[in-house]
């Protein structure tokens, strides 16, 4: 009995802040406001399938995918070193990894502006060394950099958790059976860490594909991504119906992605929880 009523606040919370807003988004995405009243229609989705909007969608997915791959390439070794090496200050290192997240996301992104600017720190150092100045800010490189920098902890942490849970006796068994370290990694460690990898990929890709602050600040507003498009519809144009339709498309894409990864996690058994 106790258990059931103690769940009510959460159910109430979820209804008010998740179910109702989602229902509203769906409702808006399938309607338009006309002088005659509100009409059900697919026009919003039809409009989204026009080339200019698909181009925006493709660019968002591409940039997010590049960032995710970079996060994985950089994050996996980092997680592996943290989990498998007998480092003295392991907890301090993990702390350092999480520490920047205590600071506001916006501030951290702003900080990159002062580093990358024409008269910023990096270019000032280059000038002192007599090297040519670089155009670092306001291009796709800066956008990807911002994404990788901001989201890489979400890649490292789940992989680290899974790796540190791997039973050492499995590795010893592999060694006993004559496997060299590279083989052990490829045949034993890596397959066992896959649930963490999938979690990491989901957790990096989702915020990366919807971000609108990073392309605005570091991309100089030259790269409209899907997040910017949605924000514009709500705040500038006031076309909530079209904005909701884009959001609905994004929700479907993300749900498909999550369905895929959660199925995979089940097959691998365990590791479902993120950290």
């Amino acid at each position: 009995m106790r258990k059931t009523w103690s769940a009510y606040p959460y159910i109430f919370w979820i209804i008010i802040f998740t179910v109702v807003p989602l229902a509203l988004v769906l409702y808006f995405s399938f309607t338009v406001k006309t002088p005659a009243g509100i009409q059900f229609t697919l026009d919003n989705f039809r409009r989204f399938s026009e080339p200019i909007y698909l181009k925006v969608l493709m660019r968002s997915i591409t940039l997010a995918a590049i960032s995710t791959v970079l996060c994985l390439l950089l994050g996996y070794p980092a997680a592996y070193i943290l989990a498998k090496n007998k480092l003295k200050n392991k907890n301090a290192l993990i702390m350092l990894l999480v520490l920047p997240m205590w600071m506001n996301f916006l501030l951290r992104t702003y900080a990159w502006l002062t580093l990358l600017e024409r008269k910023g720190l990096i270019n000032t150092i280059l000038a002192h060394l007599g090297l040519p100045q670089l155009n670092l800010l306001y291009n796709e490189f800066a956008v990807v950099l911002g994404m990788v920098y901001n989201f890489i902890p979400f890649m490292i942490l789940p992989i680290y958790t899974v790796l540190s849970k791997i039973d050492n006796s499995l590795l010893e068994a592999a060694e006993d059976l004559g496997s060299d370290p590279w083989h052990t990694f490829r045949r034993v460690v890596f397959p066992l860490s896959l649930p963490g990898v999938w979690s990491g990929i989901t957790m990096v890709f989702m915020p990366a594909v919807t971000t609108f602050v990073i392309p605005r600040l570091l991309g100089g507003g030259q790269y409209t991504l899907i997040g910017n498009l949605i924000e514009q519809q709500f705040l500038t144009v006031g076309d909530w119906n079209f904005g909701s339709a884009i959001s609905t498309v994004m929700i479907v894409i993300i749900l498909l992605g999550m369905g895929f990864t959660s199925r995979y996690e089940k097959e691998q058994e365990g590791g479902g929880g993120l950290w």
Binding site: G221, Q222, L229, Q232
Partner: peptide, 14 residues
Amino acid sequence: MLKEFDRIWTEIKS
């Protein structure tokens, strides 16, 4: 017409 401005702006930026 705001919608038209928005479409133009999106086309420029994309």
